[in-house]
Design a protein around this nucleic acid. Structure first.
Lengths: 142, 142
DNA sequence: TTTATATTTAGAATGATTCTCATTCCTTAT
DNA sequence: ATAAGGAATGAGAATCATTCTAAATATAAA
């Protein structure tokens, strides 16, 4: 298991690599994301961070989440125009959005699939990233 | 070329199939989408519809676009939290979002690709749709 | 036609996010 | 240590796209 301290140090490292500071707020927010990987919204993160840090503001939550996205520690995910959701899974993966429950599941992708998908692009298109979103119903796994 | 009247009749047909009425507003808006397939926003559509129909309101534009999406005549496309864009291309296709210019391109997909992508889902996931979004830079084709 | 129901419209309301700017916190050079 | 300078935070206002509300109008069916 990854200890809190390890992830704190990894975070501090990534931040300083980008010329940014490690702050208690950034740590709390990153830990919130690592603790429950259910693709919370900024408001969800705010609610989960408050017990740890009662004075934190929603503006700071947005700032910190944006910072973590910039450092490539977190991915921002959007479904239609719903609130942005945040995901600390850095492996290449797609998202499955359950339309009944609103819940989101990470779908691991086999090596090479993203490249294979990219290969359908005509030669004048240079894709920096590919996003795959499934929508449907997830049957509860027995 | 598809005449205006043909698409009007197709529209009227699709609408009545869904128990909806054909109205001048819905026709104008559908024609706006067919005329310039550059993935306009609701505001763009509003601006393009006004010369044809000066009294049309933005609420009606939203209503009509939503109606067209419901009838499967139009696809709604979102990039991050930007305004929803509308696309009358009904063939299976992905979208390429040019990060420099903000422009969007349809990418035709080879038959079977969407099914192939769906096949990476674990068996308990039932996908009704798959969306593929590329982001990057499109070199101007010589 | 008359009636019943859809649709349109203007404007208010909403929700997520961003902006502003004063305050506080670090870091580095002195 | 200490002061200066830049980052980061926080409270509240502002923004933007969209949805809601309610009244007026249009359409289709009987």
């Amino acid at each position: 298991m990854v200890s809190n301290t390890d992830s704190s140090e990894a975070l501090a490292q990534r931040l300083s690599d980008s010329g940014l500071r490690s702050t208690p707020q950034r740590e709390v927010i990153y830990n919130v994301l690592l603790k429950r990987r259910d693709h919370p919204t900024a408001e969800d993160v705010f609610a989960r961070a408050k017990p740890e840090m009662p004075m934190i503001s929603i503006a700071t939550v947005y700032n910190c989440l944006e910072t973590l996205v910039q450092c490539n520690l977190v991915r921002a995910v959007n479904f239609e125009r719903g609130p942005t959701r945040y995901c600390p899974n850095l492996h290449p993966h797609a998202h499955f959005h359950d339309e009944q429950t609103g819940s989101t599941h990470d779908i691991d992708l086999p090596a090479g699939l993203l490249d294979q998908v990219k290969s359908v692009l005509p030669p004048n298109f240079d894709a920096a990233s590919v996003e795959i979103i499934f929508r449907g119903k997830a049957r509860p796994t027995a």
